[in-house]
Design a protein around this nucleic acid. Structure first.
Lengths: 212, 212
DNA sequence: CGTTGTTTTGAGATATGTCAACAGGGGTGG
DNA sequence: CCACCCCTGTTGACATATCTCAAAACAACG
């Protein structure tokens, strides 16, 4: 199945009967608060299993939107669940997925809380860097981020105006460079430190590469 | 097994071999950021299964501390896992737990992000109110919260000073009252609205009561 | 009745939000 | 190929929320 950029894959309130893996393209999962603000909860990149939450509970209360054109591999939720139920190895796999998911949400909460905008941004970028490396999707210190400032803002709990300003600061400080929709990490150590990550975060990511 | 207030049940980096259910008392799960700030991720109240995360993955990177004296029912992780592996109903139960857990973290992220302090506090209290009601632990519009301001601050990403100020505002506005460590919800509808919750949030909680 | 830990209050600093104007890019239709 | 428009990003001035530091009030507890 394919999807165009900006198309919705599922909406809050839906009862879904399919789950997916991402073959190509990016997507994000979000909620809309009562006051109309959007809050982005997580992103999906190629290779990701899409919507662990939906596998566990078909009644979703979040939405998923395509960030770019994308192609997906579709699974029937019931059939997949039946398979999982029978197959021990698959069950382990699901447990692993859940565990990762829980951990990553914990981390989101931990650093989104109250860190200043610069640190939030650094964490955001370096986190993606690590994910892309682990998936074997990039090699150098430059990668594509098909996001608008508004996405970043809705992810980190900032305003797009303030994201713009803070990005300018990071550029002026010589930490990063941005052209088109690609970001270039100029000063890796400083960025990792700003992000509150271990200095060997990236080496670890390279070591884990393609161990999906 | 029993635990005194302030005692640690597990620490980040531990490999745990036991999981628990809470018989009495409160606890909280937290991380310490590289800069020394503590971030509280979740709370446990009587009846809760303690550390779904630890069941899925024995190598934990968070800590759990007792908030009050507490008594726990201990399970051997391996044995419990073996049981779960054999028993279909238990597997469903675990799936349900994970699903709830994921959802609640989503919600944390959604409202912790950028809401003003008053709304965060309202959400925090009403959320506990709902949880306690569902567990059948309270009846009226008043309940005990064995927390210091610092816990609330570390949960919501605020300063304990600011928590104090904002609480004073809520009191002055006639929304709540606090004595000892018990909170009295004076204006339920306003509090629910502030918290960004449905006006029938509590009726629902009462309806679900003790369906643990 | 002191000691220690917690909450409250105040004054001033800083980070972030809001609103509004403008600039640039990439499409679209003429 | 150009003129226009819409969407996004940038910049500025100002308002506000939250933090910091420090002192004082209060509570719990031996």
């Amino acid at each position: 199945r394919t999807l165009r950029a900006r198309q919705l894959l599922m909406s809050a309130g839906d009862t879904v009967s399919s789950v997916f893996t991402v073959l190509s393209g990016w997507a994000f999962r979000f909620k809309v608060l009562p006051d109309g603000h959007r809050r982005i909860l997580s992103y999906y990149i190629p290779g990701d299993f899409l919507a662990t939450e939906a596998l566990l509970n078909p009644h979703v209360n979040f939405s998923i939107e395509a960030l770019t054109d994308m192609s997906l591999c579709v699974f029937d939720r019931d059939k997949l669940l039946a398979l999982v139920d029978e197959n021990r190895a698959l069950r382990q796999k699901v447990i692993y997925l859940c565990s990762r998911k829980l951990e990553s949400l914990d981390n989101r909460i931990a650093y989104i809380g109250t860190r200043p905008a610069g640190e939030k941004l650094a964490h955001f970028f370096m986190h993606f860097y690590g994910r892309l490396v682990r998936k074997g999707l990039i090699a150098g210190d430059r990668f594509e981020l098909p996001l608008r400032h508004e996405h970043i803002a809705d992810t980190l709990g900032l305003t797009s105006v303030h994201v713009s300003r803070t990005l300018s600061e990071l550029k002026r400080a010589g930490l990063i460079e941005i052209q088109n929709h690609a970001i270039h990490i100029l000063d890796q150590p400083s960025m990792l430190m700003l992000a509150g990550l271990d200095s060997d975060y990236l080496s670890k990511a390279y070591a884990e590469r393609k161990a999906s």
